[in-house]
Every structure is written in structure tokens, then in C-alpha cells.
């Protein structure tokens, strides 16, 4: 576009837009630090005074919450590991090797990406009950990975394709076996994509709700999202502890995004626009 005459004016506009947009989030954090009587005050206050952490103590005093946060951590970690384990070799094969059936596999991944979770949760509910996977970490990790695997392959496959095949062949000629080529040549070049996939898989699994609700119905495996929903009871909700819980669940999301946002934004746009 033409030269920008007043860049700071644009900054101001964008800052106001962003601030207005983030009001609900700021309100959540602010409420979580307010005394219960201040939360329902007639005139809303932005900066909590007096500042208190009692909502957090109250929320965490319910043993269901620490357990649920731990469950979410275990499930998300498992999903990241399983996703990378399946997606890296699969993306390599789909990118490099002409195989029969690779078209069908790409189609299956596409379908997986557009499935509303409930469509898969319904049959998985019956099948996991039959196989004893219901209410287990394994069952939840496997179900969540159906959400992350398609995304992972979509991000990683073009990355493999962008690595010059000559580079691999040179390493092979130099006496490096195929595993060596993958370990020393391909994987390091895929690093940014691997980080994006790990980060996005973590975020997706951490925020996942439908499978948690339907396939993990015991407190031993229930993720934090499901527990947050159960805290938001039908009437007379304790808003302070509820907002504290919502803030606690958001903290890892913000941290992961803050650390990895460059990689994630790159991965997101690559994954969505190019298909």
C-alpha cells in the first residue's frame, strides 16, 4: 500500500479495538481477584480492591479441581506425544513416497478435520465401553488425537516436501542409512513445524470438551474443562471461584502461546489456507 503517514494513529486504533475485544478476558481475571461482596457490587470496578486470592483458595479447596488440572496435563502430554509419533512418519511417507492408497488416507484426514466431535463421540462411547477404554486416559488420549493428527499432517507434509530430495540422497550416498537421514537431515529441518504441531496439539487437547464429557465420566480422568462446566451450576453460581477456575485453565494456554506464538501462527495459516 501507499506510505503510511500516521503509523501511531493506526497503533492507537488497533490498541483500542484490541482492548475492547479483550474486555471479557480482562473482566474474568479482574473478577477472580475480587472479594465476593465486590463481585456483585452495583457499580462494577475494574481494579479489584481489596485485592484477594480467596477465590483461588476456594476453587482449589474442592479436590475435583487439582485432580482435573492434573488429568488435563496428563491427557494433553499424551496427545502431544501420540500425535508426533504418528504424524511424523506418516507425513514423511505421504510427502515423499508414491504409495497406493495415499490419496484415500489424505481424504480420511480431511474428513477427520471436518467431523463435529459429537459424531465421533457417539460411536466411540459404545466402542470404548465395549473395550474397557471408557474412563481411561488411553481412551481420552486416543480420541483427542483424532483432532490433532489431521492438523499435524497438514502442517508437516508440505514441510517435508520443501526439503530438497537431493539433500537426502547426498546423505544416503555418503553412507548414512535411511534412519540416519531422517534423524540427522529431515527431523532438524522440520523442527519449526514439530514445535508448532506440539504446541497446537497441547492447546487443542487442553481445551477439548466433548470427548471429556462423554468418554471420561469419572473424576479420576475428567479434564479441567468438564469440571469447569460442572462448576457453572444452573442457579446461584459462585462467580468468584468460577472465574478463578476459568483463569487457572487459561494460564497454560497463554503461556504456551506466548512462548510458541511465532511457530503456531505460521503453522495455523499454512494448515488452513493451503489445505
Amino acid at each position: 500500500m501507499t506510505t503510511i503517514r500516521k503509523p501511531w494513529l493506526h497503533t492507537a486504533t488497533a490498541a483500542v479495538v484490541t482492548a475492547v475485544f479483550l474486555v471479557p478476558v480482562l473482566w474474568m481475571v479482574s473478577t477472580s481477584f475480587k472479594k465476593p461482596d465486590r463481585i456483585l457490587a452495583v457499580s462494577p470496578q475494574w481494579i479489584p480492591s481489596p485485592f484477594t486470592t480467596e477465590n483461588y483458595s476456594a476453587a482449589l479447596a474442592n479436590p475435583a479441581l487439582p485432580r482435573a488440572l492434573l488429568n488435563s496435563l496428563v491427557i494433553s502430554g499424551g496427545v502431544v506425544a501420540l500425535t508426533l509419533l504418528l504424524a511424523v512418519p506418516l507425513s514423511y511417507a505421504l510427502a515423499r513416497i508414491p504409495m497406493r492408497g495415499s490419496g484415500a488416507m489424505v481424504l480420511a484426514l480431511l474428513i477427520a478435520q471436518l467431523l463435529p466431535a459429537i459424531v465421533l463421540a457417539a460411536p466411540l462411547f459404545i466402542l470404548e465401553r465395549k473395550t474397557g477404554l471408557q474412563n481411561t486416559y488411553t481412551g481420552l488420549i486416543a480420541a483427542d488425537t483424532t483432532l490433532t493428527l489431521p492438523f499435524a499432517v497438514v502442517v508437516l507434509r508440505p514441510l517435508v516436501q520443501s526439503i530438497p530430495a537431493e539433500l537426502e540422497e547426498a546423505a544416503l550416498v555418503d553412507g548414512c542409512g535411511l534412519p540416519g537421514v531422517l534423524g540427522y537431515v529431515v527431523l532438524p529441518l522440520m523442527a519449526p513445524g514439530l514445535i508448532a504441531v506440539a504446541g497446537m496439539s497441547f492447546l487443542l487437547a487442553w481445551g477439548e470438551f466433548v470427548f471429556g464429557l462423554t468418554l471420561g465420566q469419572t473424576p479420576e480422568v475428567q479434564p479441567a474443562t468438564v469440571v469447569l462446566n460442572s462448576f457453572a451450576g444452573p442457579v446461584r453460581t459462585a462467580w468468584g471461584p468460577l472465574m478463578a477456575t476459568a483463569t487457572l485453565i487459561s494460564v497454560p494456554v497463554v503461556c504456551v502461546f506466548a512462548i510458541l506464538h511465532r511457530f503456531i501462527v505460521g503453522g495455523l495459516t499454512a494448515g488452513s489456507v493451503k489445505g
Binding site: L22, P24, G207, F209, M243, A246, S250, F257, V265
Partner: peptide
């Protein structure tokens, strides 16, 4: 192009990355 473009954009995107259960709870409240 303007100063802090990337930062503000990332802040907006963060709202999208919040678990929908969290956003829903916020709006409910």
C-alpha cells in the same frame, strides 16, 4: 504496518485460542 502490529494481533489471536468452555463461561457470567 504500524508499531506493535504483531503484538496486538497476537493478543487478539489469544482470545481465539482460549478453550471454548472458558469463553462460554465468561459470556455466561
Amino acid at each position: 504496518p504500524f508499531p506493535f502490529n504483531g503484538l496486538l494481533r497476537s493478543l487478539l489471536l489469544m482470545a481465539w485460542l482460549l478453550p471454548p468452555i472458558v469463553s462460554g463461561t465468561l459470556f455466561r457470567w
